[in-house]
Design a protein around this nucleic acid. Structure first.
Lengths: 165, 165
DNA sequence: TTTGTTATGTTATAATATAGCAATAAGGGT
DNA sequence: ACCCTTATTGCTATATTATAACATAACAAA
């Protein structure tokens, strides 16, 4: 393949409309199958979250929403985000106070995030070996893992390329 | 041994004065060896952080400090915490907006934290296998790890015992 | 249509964190 | 000791992120 291991971060010039489209379709399906109400507001917020592969703050989303003619208050956004997070459609990045779309939801699945220092983009990965190592390491301390959150700051393939050739 | 694998979390009835004493001595050493100024304020904040094995918020620390006769503003606490964090004496728990003392410092070492849902206590672990799994998993996505932060929510040995016998 | 439930609107406020500048204290050379 | 420089602290204001509390509206089931 052209770019070994670069699947998690989309190439800069990718078709982002397709990302959004796929995410929306997936969310529609999930909500239909689970009898959840994917209301206009929730749909809008979800779409806004997906405008970028970098996480967006709640007040960023609020501003974007209101630029589209709405006049929502902070609560409105937070409630929509709560719904989306509860069903795994969006994740919160604790280290950034910001929110990122998820493309393989499922209630409350734990996150492993790669956060690029340079471009700010975030990729979610799902490595069994990490989850296993966490479970084992915790159990050595007599600890029962419920919700492991892994936020890995570093440098993505594209940004490393930009610097080091 | 009496309680397999329970090293990370101290037993509830442990001698906490010794925890504080050890931490203070260690911090003194570290600062002396590195020519850092462990001022009265920083010392106080560090001691306050160590009053509990559960993380404390910046404003909690502020209140505690001011109860001791000082009249500090938020900035004061944040600056002291910044210093302590820069030298690995304290860590911030992103998932809680709270701060916890570290007993094996060293500039900017990355954290692996076990956070008990029930008692709120936090134990820091240092599992090579976790760090390795993270590095490997990230590199499969072409990502260069700089600062992995792992916050694992769950249930500690003591709290599990309290429920399940 | 009534009723119970879920979702949204609205106002106020809590909780966490930083900016910016003045005053003070600590070290280093002379 | 003195001056100079830098690091630290004090202080006021303000930014940023998030929640409380209660009213209204939409929906869905009986």
């Amino acid at each position: 393949m052209a770019r070994a291991g670069s699947k998690a971060f989309p190439v800069p010039e990718h078709d982002h409309a397709a990302c959004i489209g796929d995410a929306m379709a997936m969310a529609e399906d999930l909500c239909r199958e689970n009898g959840l109400r994917f209301t206009r507001l929730r749909r809008q917020v979800f779409e806004l979250v997906w405008t970028s592969h970098a996480p967006l703050g709640a007040y960023d989303l609020l501003a974007m929403l209101n630029e589209r003619g709405q006049r929502a208050a902070p609560m409105t956004i937070y409630r929509a985000l709560d719904f989306l997070m509860a069903h795994g459609l969006v994740h919160r990045l604790n280290s950034r106070n910001a929110y990122i779309g998820c493309n393989h939801p499922g209630d409350g699945h734990a996150g492993q995030f790669l956060i690029c220092r340079d471009c700010g983009r975030v990729a979610e990965i799902e490595e069994r070996r990490i989850a296993e190592a966490v479970r084992d390491g915790a159990s050595r301390a007599g600890f029962d893992v419920r919700l492991p959150v892994i936020e890995i700051e570093g440098q993505c393939f594209d940004c490393r390329g930009a610097r080091h050739g």
